[in-house]
């Protein structure tokens, strides 16, 4: 089979898992999004060897390599809310960045300290 066809079929498989995840979310009324449930589902299927690793391999590699591409339409959405960030609103960007830096530094440092302690033990 052609490489392109394989990748398309495998992405269709990933889409099927995403739909299944969304369905589980709706039926059980969960707050976790369908995509995350789909990912956990695939992880379980791989762990139990129900889905062999090579079955979706090329499709997965393609999606992960181009992950940033799939965010572009969502990030372009900033255009609709530009007015909120005028004048005093600029402060919101600073707050968002500062808070993000805090999360990154604190969560990373806590983990790093615990990991190093564990590696030394």
């Amino acid at each position: 089979m052609n490489r392109f066809v394989i990748v398309v079929l495998q992405i269709a498989g990933l889409y099927g898992l995403y739909l299944t995840g969304s369905w589980i979310q709706q039926v059980l009324g969960l707050f976790i999004p369908g995509s995350v449930i789909g990912m956990l589902l695939l992880f379980v299927l791989l762990s139990l060897k129900i889905v062999p690793e090579r079955l979706l391999q090329q499709g997965v590699a393609f999606m992960i390599r181009h992950l940033p591409f799939f965010f572009i339409p969502a990030t372009v959405g900033i255009i609709s809310y530009a007015h909120v960030f005028k004048g005093k609103g600029l402060l919101l960007i600073a707050i968002g960045l500062f808070s993000t830096a805090m999360v990154m530094a604190v969560s990373g440092r806590v983990t790093q300290t615990l990991v190093k302690r564990r590696e030394e033990a």
Binding site: L14, Y18, V36, G38, L42, L46, M63
Partner: peptide, 9 residues
């Protein structure tokens, strides 16, 4: 959605 699912690998 499927891109997030792929992160299971």
């Amino acid at each position: 959605g499927p891109a997030v699912v792929a992160l299971a690998y």
